[in-house]
Design a binder for these strands. Structure first.
Length: 265
DNA sequence: ATGCCTGCGGTTCGCAGA
């Protein structure tokens, strides 16, 4: 089965691209981030007509995550345990959605993750990012005790390694690449998770995001920040990881492209 | 050194993103 993740940067602006991707690539599961709408505004009818079930955790204007799946979506959980950290206005941020997807050989647990950006680093936004990462790690530790196929997929807003940026020097003071960020990402992976792309390739130049500004796409000035982290039971079944680069060349693209894994289940 | 773009809310600008 194919499980994909995509920061779509507004599902309303990108509905055409979304339906085309579902039709042409036909992933079994698609985790979306930055849908930027409330639950009621998600284009559920169009996505269901394309053959997908939908689980949404949205909010007004910002953030928002969803899980689309051809098979039934069960045991849906909105937010990290204990509710998400409140922002300065006291509202919860819709950044984590988890569910179980049935397969012929058992269930796969999937999470759609939109990890906080954290910039600028000398502000509470960075503290929020680091604490969110610690809460995610604590939750992942609990999920791993289930010893089931698990895919933690999403926009982590983390550049794990210098080879994951075309120009690492411009990110050295950025919340996506600062040592505390990378250390916490490493701590998450070190629980026993596998970075699916790195299990398939050691190469540089494999990016999932290109900024809209300054011709980043045309210069291939990209970074790899969208990741699928696999439990041992999922990693054992990993066949392939794909970065769907061509979507960045479309008219009115998202600044991120989908990344997918093929699992032998 | 700064802004470069894009989406959103709400109004022609500010905020957020990365």
């Amino acid at each position: 089965m194919r499980i994909a993740t995509w920061n779509i940067n507004s599902v309303k602006q990108r509905l055409g691209h979304l339906l085309a991707f579902l039709a042409e690539d036909a992933p079994d599961v698609l985790c979306l981030q930055e849908i930027k709408c409330v639950d009621e505004a998600f284009p559920r009818a169009e996505v269901e007509a394309a053959g997908y079930n939908v689980a949404v955790y949205g909010q007004k204007a910002f953030n928002g995550v969803a899980i689309l799946a051809r098979r039934p979506i069960e045991d849906v959980k909105r937010g990290l345990p204990g509710r998400d950290w409140a922002d300065q206005e006291g509202e919860d941020q819709a950044r984590y959605l988890e569910a179980s997807i049935s397969t012929d050989t058992g269930a796969v647990r999937v999470a759609s993750i939109y990890l906080p950006n954290g910039n600028p680093p000398d502000t509470p936004k960075y503290d929020y990012k680091l604490r969110w990462m610690e809460r995610l790690t604590e939750h992942a530790q609990n999920l791993l005790t289930l010893e089931e196929p698990l895919v933690l997929a999403g926009d982590y807003n983390v550049i794990p390694d210098p080879r994951d940026a075309a120009r690492p020097e411009i990110w050295v003071s950025d919340a996506l690449f600062l040592p505390p960020t990378r250390e916490r990402f490493r701590a998450l992976v070190d629980l026993g998770l596998t970075d699916a792309l790195r299990a398939c390739s050691d190469a540089g130049g494999l990016y999932s995001f290109w900024d809209y500004q300054a011709g980043a796409w045309q210069k291939n000035n990209g970074i790899r920040i969208d990741h699928l982290l696999l439990s041992p039971q999922a990693a054992d079944r990993l066949q392939h990881t794909t970065i769907h680069r061509s979507l960045r060349a479309l008219e009115k693209p998202s600044d991120h492209v989908p990344v997918s894994v093929d699992l032998a289940v």
